[in-house]
Design a protein around this nucleic acid. Sequence first.
DNA 1: ATGGCTATGTAGCATAGA
Length: 260
Amino acid sequence: MKIATWNVNSLRVRLPQVLEWLGGCPVDALALQETKLPDEQFPLEKLREAGYEAVFHGQKTYNGVALLSRRAATEVTRGLPGAHDEQRRCLAATVNGVRIVCVYVPNGQSVDSDKYRYKLDWLARLRDYLEQELQRYPRLAVVGDFNIAPADADVHDPAAWEGQVLCSAPERAALQALLDTGLKDSFRLFDQPPQQYSWWDYRAGAFRRNAGLRIDHVLSSCELSASCTQCRIEAEPRRWQRPSDHAPVVAEFAEQPAKS
DNA sequence: ATGGCTATGTAGCATAGA
């Protein structure tokens, strides 16, 4: 079972690239963030022609999440439970017996902003939600754009980013609190080459210089991570014409043994 | 070099991203 996540920064613009990428790397499920599309404009038919079903939770201009899958997803939950939130950043569904939570964690702008406070509040709500989901679904993957680099090894220039948004200690603690519910960073289950990042600023030739951050993650529950055979960042689409600033992240899981 | 670039909404720039 292959599960991937990709912040596409506008599905309207990036749909051809999503289809191109899926053509070369078919997956069972692909979580998308920043679709920036109202649900009535979601390109469901074009995705179906390519062999993918989709569920989505979008809005105009900002945010928006979706989950593409070869087999139709079930038990779809849109948004974080609890307080109503205009910002559409969370979508959960079950695919092939795996519960997948797709998140687009708020960016936070800067550590002294209201958006940063909203980000930390949102992460606390997500933690409570994941705790419940794990009880119901032992095979759980939490995937998406977390807008947090877990450690200095995930930052091209740790000194420059120290204390900054995406790298600050409270954000890293909030990510750790998610992991503490019983999740693992699938990428770090394996030896990885150095300087692996999932996002590069559009400006100043950041991708060419590999001046990036690893902020897109596949977190997997203990039960699921036990069957994880691989996790990698696919930097190739970042080289394409008119790319998203994020690269897809793919994790592969061995099939669940048949119950006797 | 506190900028650099991209997308959206909307018609010359503002906002947001990370």
